[in-house]
Computed example of a mutant assay.
Amino acid sequence: MTDMTLLGDRYFLAIKALKNRLHACAAWFKPAPKTLHVGRINDHLARDIGLSQAEIARHRLTLPSQTHHHPRG
């Protein structure tokens, strides 16, 4: 019974190692972000790194429901 448990653990660890390796490869191929992601920092930190209020507002994500501009007219 002990051999079956060890064999099961080996298969589990082999599959886990394969998944970790595939995840690392996928993360390596993922392109770097092309724009500044300001949405995750607050206004105080953005001012500390030298961004103006206009730059902060330009880089923030605005959803269509948060604006009055309609893209089709």
Rank of each mutant, 00 (worst) to 15 (best):
R72L: 02
Y11E: 07
K34A: 11
H44Q: 15
A26R: 08
G73S: 01
D3A: 14
H59Q: 11
L51K: 05
R10T: 02
A27M: 04
D48H: 10
L45G: 09
L18H: 12
H23V: 10
R47W: 13
N42V: 08
L13R: 06
F29M: 07
L63N: 10
M4Y: 08
N20A: 14
A27T: 09
H44D: 14
A46Q: 05
R47F: 13
A24Y: 09
L18I: 15
P64H: 06
N20E: 14
L6M: 11
R60S: 05
P71Y: 04
H59I: 04
L7F: 13
I56P: 02
H69S: 15
A26Y: 12
T35Q: 11
H37A: 15
P64N: 02
T62I: 06
A14S: 00
R58N: 00
T35W: 12
A26K: 05
I15T: 14
H59S: 02
L6Q: 02
R47H: 13
M4V: 00
K16S: 13
K19N: 15
R10F: 07
A26I: 07
F12H: 00
S65Y: 07
I41G: 01
R47N: 04
R21G: 15
L7N: 09
R40L: 05
H69E: 06
P33V: 00
D9I: 12
G39H: 09
T67Y: 10
Q66W: 11
W28G: 07
A54G: 07
P64R: 03
H70C: 03
G50Y: 11
H70T: 11
G73N: 05
T62V: 08
P71V: 11
H68W: 12
L51M: 10
A57L: 00
R72V: 09
T5Y: 15
K30S: 07
L61R: 14
A26C: 01
Q66C: 02
G39I: 03
F12E: 01
I49C: 06
R58F: 13
R72Y: 02
G39K: 01
T35S: 13
T2W: 03
M1K: 10
A32M: 15
G8Y: 04
K19F: 07
G50Q: 08
R47V: 07
A24N: 12
I49P: 05
R10K: 14
A54F: 08
L61V: 08
A26L: 08
A17W: 01
N42I: 03
D43V: 14
Y11C: 05
A27H: 09
T5F: 14
